[in-house]
């Protein structure tokens, strides 16, 4: 008994220690800093500075607009892609190659990939040249330094996560469920919307949460692709911590980002749960 009890204690303690050391302690440090001023006196001034200022609200709006649109586009592109990989590809080696191509960018640095998009999206970049050659635009589009440019970069970087989660959900669906649906008279479209899609919803939700959380907290891609013209919360946080060294104001910005992110995820999961009823 003693032996097994101490084993259990160790099994619980070790992850708890890890969690405390690498997550709770830094979070507490940041949160404490956000509620004090430079002299260590408790204050709400840092939050007042953020929440009573329209500039900050516009940054918050930009951040979450980018996050939500990135998530939606990722799902819209990722679902068909996952469908192709799981349902259409017949040859295992080709599927494996596709998955490798999908995951490979994750092994390279965000910075390298974002720089790549800077080159592609520039005035004389590949995207603009292609559009002009195809006769779709006369003058080069301004993509770099706009929300559209950041969006393209974020979608590119975060797409693999939704493809993997949705693909996993699709692969787990028992094929006989879709056959049963057809057997009961459902057209292929009805089978998709009433059986397949609801059963992949948890995969979509998992992918969406990952993408959204990474998109709103992304620093490198917005920083590089915005050209300084578009500001998101993560960029403000980085400036406070690395250039201004105002950990109190920076901490409040970080906590604001965290609270808004959790609130949006919470609300959306509540809405989807009510909608499922």
């Amino acid at each position: 008994m003693i032996n097994s009890r101490s084993t259990v204690a160790a099994l619980v303690f070790l992850p708890l220690l890890f969690f405390t050391a690498f997550f709770l302690v830094p979070l507490t440090v940041v949160a404490t800093a956000s509620f004090t001023n430079g002299d260590g006196v408790p204050t709400l001034a840092n939050y007042a500075r953020i929440l009573l200022d329209t500039y900050h609200w516009s940054v918050i709006a930009t951040t979450f607009r980018l996050g939500i649109v990135t998530t939606l586009i990722c799902i819209l592109i990722g679902y068909p892609l996952a469908w192709y990989l799981v349902r259409i590809v017949k040859f295992r080696s080709w599927r494996r190659l596709c998955v490798i191509l999908l995951i490979l960018p994750l092994f390279t640095s965000n910075i390298v990939r974002s720089f790549g998009w800077m080159v592609l999206l520039g005035r004389n970049g590949l995207v603009n040249e292609t559009l002009q050659m195809a006769g779709l635009t006369e003058r080069p589009l301004r993509l770099l330094g706009t929300e559209t440019g950041i969006l393209i970069g974020l979608v590119y970087i975060l797409l693999p996560f939704v493809v993997l989660t949705i693909g996993n959900a699709l692969a787990k669906i028992d094929h006989s469920l879709e056959q049963a649906s057809a057997d009961l008279g459902a057209s292929p479209a009805a089978t998709f919307w009433r059986v397949t899609f609801p059963l992949t919803a948890p995969g979509i939700a998992a992918g969406a949460i990952i993408v959204f959380a990474l998109a709103v907290s992304a620093y490198v891609t917005p920083a590089l692709l915005s050209g300084g013209r578009v500001t998101v919360l993560a960029v403000l946080v980085f400036q406070q911590y690395s250039s201004v060294f105002d950990f109190h104001y920076g901490g409040a910005l970080a906590v604001t980002l965290l609270v808004f992110t959790m609130a949006i995820i919470g609300i959306s999961s509540l809405v989807s749960r009510l909608g499922a009823r």
Binding site: S176, L177, Q179, D183, L184, T191, V195, P198
Partner: peptide
């Protein structure tokens, strides 16, 4: 299959879990 006038009982029942 969805236009055939017959129904099937599947080996694993294939009940819709949701």
């Amino acid at each position: 299959a969805h236009r055939r006038p017959l129904n099937t009982v599947f080996q694993n029942y294939a009940l819709f879990p949701h």
